[in-house]
Design a binder for these strands. Structure first.
Lengths: 231, 231
DNA sequence: CGATTTTGGTAACACCAGATACCGACATGA
DNA sequence: TCATGTCGGTATCTGGTGTTACCAAAATCG
């Protein structure tokens, strides 16, 4: 298997946190993952279809979308190499994907069945417990993220959403100037608004002297004003 | 410790699923929980304060509130004996309560530190692994529920929300005529819209012959139309 | 390099939904 | 019985947001 090339990536995956590269190489043999490659626009997982295993991104980028019945889609998160997806499904009673995962670029991902993680490989490898603990941490983080998503979605005005989002970036980086991790289209998806409306409102805020920006680079000029609008 | 009295309650908690009462009694000794009693109106946890451990309700009732930046509070869920709270926090890197938990009646709750669950008690009790798996299932289920909430919130039109809600009630009861479990005010809150707007749109749908209603009683007249609107 | 695609800003317009106010139908209670 | 409060429907007005279309700058690619 050509998985040796990806040990470096896997060692950065949350699932394997606390394991050495040598350990990971050994574990991989036991976990029997399946590697698949996708072209841009292809689906790594489709909402409503059956869950086959926990996914780990190896190369490229993919986006997780939640779609409602009319086909409107909200981007949940952008996956990069080392990122894990499907971890929520793996241990819930639900067995159908609640989201669609779409390749944003040509990409590769690896899939591990849930049974292998819990340790039904018969050999009772001692590291399964640590693996489950890692899973627990990951799922908790994901739940926190979803909770935050709910918070965003319940903000009604676009300005409120933008403010809340920028404040989060500010807290994360600790700096008033930072790069947005997505382009306008993706950000609009994420905030569940239309792209022109997002653009319009960001420009309004710039004209009012609250923020300044150019492409993906943003600078918060009036932090207090921003805080007042995050609601 | 007077925890023996509560073994019955604990045996119904999801955390201890799959364990016998005898096992639970033994585990409790190792888990070294702290029991605290609260008067009505006291706080079991306060948003923004430090997390100290996973909570399990033993007696009485408490409510989980989410507060937004403006200070408005929304009740998320009502906790009853056996219910677990803080399970998401316990294993995430986040260490501050995102919600406030307030006693609705005099109540008692038990707190277990995260270290004890993982099994740093030194004795390496064999049931820790099962305990962690239970935690994993609980957190996964919670995440799935949050994911559904996101689905609901990302519907943009009032008509879409009403349709989705009515369809859910239809699926739940299996009948086209049913009683709404809340009044208009509560329903508007739940759907995250204003009360007059909800009223207006419901009447429009009635005028169009899609539904019929009087007070809390609703009848679906055109199921297909409703499905088309649940975008 | 030039052609093509992607990205993001802008404008015009329609319309949905929030805010507010008011009213009638009921329920509750002294 | 009347007074009071709650609940829900309705009308008006306004503002925020989606839609659509177009354009310029930047990135990508042959």
């Amino acid at each position: 298997m050509e998985l040796e090339r990806y040990i470096e990536v896997l060692s950065k995956a949350e699932l394997f946190k606390g394991f050495s590269k040598d350990e990971i190489a050994l574990m991989i043999k036991c976990l029997e993952p399946k590697v698949k490659a996708y072209q841009k626009g292809n689906y790594l997982a489709i909402a409503g279809e059956k869950f086959h295993g926990l996914g780990i991104m190896l190369e490229g980028e993919a986006a997780v979308y939640k779609e409602n019945m009319a086909g409107n889609r909200v981007m949940m998160v952008l996956l990069k190499p080392g990122d894990v997806f499907g971890e929520i499904l793996a241990f819930s009673t639900e067995s159908l994907w609640p989201v669609t995962v779409e390749a944003q670029q040509p990409c590769k991902a690896l899939f591990i069945s849930r049974h292998k993680i819990v340790g039904e490989c018969g050999r009772a490898c001692p590291w399964h417990r640590k693996l489950i603990e890692n899973m627990l941490t990951m799922v908790s983080e994901r739940a926190i993220a979803l909770s935050r998503k709910v918070e965003y979605l319940s903000i009604k005005s676009i300005r409120g959403k933008i403010s809340a989002y920028l404040l989060e970036q500010y807290k994360k980086t600790g700096k008033t100037t930072f790069m947005l991790p997505m382009n306008r289209n993706a950000l609009a998806d994420f905030l569940n608004v239309s792209r022109p409306s997002l653009s319009r409102e960001m420009c309004n805020m710039r004209d009012e002297g609250i923020i300044d920006f150019h492409r993906a680079s943003v600078r918060i000029k009036d932090l207090e004003a921003l805080k007042n609008m995050a609601q």
